[in-house]
C-alpha cells in the first residue's frame, strides 16, 4: 500500500498502475483537492466530455472520468459526498492575496493550486500546454436556475472521502490549495492511499456511455 498525507496548500503527483483504488480522505473540514489526470502518451482528462456523456454537472459515483481521446481514465467508485466540482478550475496566483513571501512567512508561504500543479507537471515532463479543467474533490459549487455559481462552504467535513479506480496507467497531479471561490485560506490536509481495487461493476452498469469509455480503456494498447 502507498499512503501519503498531502498537507493543505501543497501539491503532489504520483503514477498509478491500472486497477488500483486511489482513496482521497479529507483530514479536516473544507478540504479541496484539485486533480489533473494525464497519461504518459499525452492523453488527459476532458471534463466537458465527461459531464456531457453522463449528463451531469458534477462528479460523483459511479461516473467514469473520460479523456480527450475517449478513454475512461478512472472510475469514481465511491464517495461520502454526492458532489465534487469540476466547473470552476483551480486557484491561480491572483487568488492568493497574502503570505506570498517566503522571506517573511517561511513555510507558511501560500502557493496557488496553479503554481503547485505546474511545478508537478513540469517535473514529469509536461507544461502549461497540458493544463486542463481539474476535478476539485470535496468541493461543491451550486448552480442556480439562471446559471449563477456559488461555493457551498460547509460541503466537506473531516473524514469525507472519495475513491477512484484507475482504468489505465495514470499520472495524478494534485493540489490541496483552497478552491478558487473560497475566500478563506484554511486548507485541509488530504490523505492519499493506493491499494488493489476490489471488483466493482457499478460504473460499467451505470450507463452505456460509461461502459463504452471503459471498453476504450481496455483497448488503449492493442
Amino acid at each position: 500500500m502507498t499512503a501519503h498525507d498531502v498537507p493543505g496548500g501543497a501539491a503532489w503527483s504520483l503514477r498509478v498502475r491500472p486497477g488500483r483504488e486511489v482513496r482521497f480522505t479529507a483530514l479536516g473540514p473544507g478540504a479541496c483537492c484539485s486533480l489533473l489526470l494525464l497519461t504518459s502518451d499525452g492523453d488527459r482528462l476532458n471534463v466537458p466530455d465527461t459531464l456531457k456523456a453522463q449528463m451531469s454537472a458534477r462528479i460523483a459515483p459511479p461516473m467514469v472520468l473520460m479523456s480527450d481521446r475517449g478513454v475512461g481514465l478512472a472510475s469514481v467508485t465511491g464517495s461520502s459526498l454526492d458532489w465534487h466540482d469540476a466547473l470552476c478550475g483551480h486557484s491561480t496566483d491572483r487568488h492568493v492575496t497574502s503570505h506570498a513571501s517566503y522571506q517573511e512567512h517561511r513555510n507558511d508561504r501560500r502557493v496557488s493550486a496553479r503554481t503547485g500543479l505546474l511545478s508537478e507537471l513540469r517535473k514529469r515532463g509536461f507544461d502549461r500546454t497540458d493544463l486542463h479543467a481539474s476535478v476539485n474533490l470535496f468541493s461543491k459549487v451550486a448552480v442556480a436556475a439562471d446559471g449563477a455559481l456559488s461555493l457551498v462552504t460547509d460541503h466537506c467535513a473531516a473524514d469525507d472521502w472519495v475513491t477512484l479506480r484507475t482504468e489505465v496507467e495514470l499520472l495524478l497531479v494534485m493540489s490541496t490549495s483552497p478552491h478558487p471561490l473560497d475566500l478563506e485560506w484554511k486548507p485541509a490536509d488530504v490523505r492519499v492511499t493506493v491499494t488493489a481495487a476490489p471488483p466493482d461493476d457499478g460504473p460499467r452498469l451505470s450507463r452505456a456511455e460509461s461502459a463504452r469509455a471503459l471498453d476504450a480503456a481496455r483497448e488503449v494498447l492493442a
Binding site: 476532458n46 466537458p48 459531464l51 456523456a53 454537472a57 475517449g70 478513454v71 456511455e209 469509455a213 476504450a216
Partner: peptide
C-alpha cells in the same frame, strides 16, 4: 461553454463505434 466539442472519440462513447 461547458459542453465541449464533439470528437470522433467522444462520439463513440455517446453513440457507439
Amino acid at each position: 461553454t461547458l459542453g465541449g466539442a464533439c470528437s470522433q472519440e467522444s462520439n463513440v462513447i455517446r453513440y457507439g463505434t
